Simulated scan of single mutants.
Amino acid sequence: MELNLTQEELATAIGYRGAPSISQIESGLRPLTNSKLVALAKFLGVHPSDIRGTKLSVVRSSS
Rank of each mutant, 00 (worst) to 15 (best):
Glu2His: 03
Glu2Trp: 00
Glu2Val: 14
Leu3Lys: 07
Leu5Trp: 07
Thr6Pro: 06
Glu9Thr: 01
Glu9Gln: 15
Glu9Arg: 03
Leu10Gln: 10
Ala11Leu: 01
Ala11Glu: 04
Ala11Val: 01
Ala13Met: 06
Ala13Pro: 12
Ala13Leu: 08
Ala13Trp: 00
Ala13His: 03
Ile14Gly: 11
Ile14Arg: 03
Tyr16Thr: 03
Tyr16Cys: 04
Tyr16Gln: 03
Arg17Cys: 03
Gly18Cys: 06
Gly18Tyr: 02
Gly18Gln: 04
Gly18Asp: 10
Pro20Glu: 04
Pro20Ala: 05
Pro20Thr: 10
Ser21Gln: 12
Ile22Lys: 03
Ile22Met: 07
Ile22Asp: 06
Ser23Glu: 06
Gln24Thr: 10
Ile25Leu: 06
Glu26Asn: 05
Ser27Gln: 13
Gly28Arg: 05
Leu29Pro: 00
Arg30Phe: 02
Arg30Gln: 13
Leu32Gly: 09
Thr33His: 08
Thr33Trp: 04
Asn34Cys: 06
Ser35His: 12
Lys36His: 15
Lys36Phe: 02
Leu37Lys: 02
Val38Met: 11
Val38Ile: 15
Ala39Met: 07
Ala39Trp: 03
Ala39Gly: 09
Leu40Pro: 04
Leu40Glu: 01
Ala41Asn: 08
Ala41Asp: 03
Lys42His: 01
Phe43Pro: 06
Phe43Met: 15
Phe43Gly: 13
Phe43Asp: 11
Phe43Val: 11
Leu44Met: 15
Leu44Ile: 06
Leu44Cys: 07
Leu44Thr: 01
Gly45Pro: 02
Gly45His: 05
Gly45Arg: 04
Val46His: 00
Val46Leu: 11
Val46Thr: 12
His47Cys: 09
Pro48Tyr: 06
Pro48Leu: 14
Pro48Ala: 13
Ser49Pro: 01
Asp50Asn: 14
Asp50Phe: 08
Ile51Gly: 12
Ile51Gln: 10
Arg52Ile: 11
Arg52Asn: 07
Gly53Pro: 09
Gly53Cys: 10
Thr54Arg: 11
Lys55Thr: 15
Lys55Gln: 15
Lys55Asp: 13
Leu56Trp: 03
Ser57Met: 10
Ser57Pro: 00
Val58Ser: 08
Val58Thr: 15
Arg60Gln: 15
Arg60Ile: 14
Ser61Gln: 09
Ser61Met: 02
Ser63Leu: 12
Ser63Ile: 08
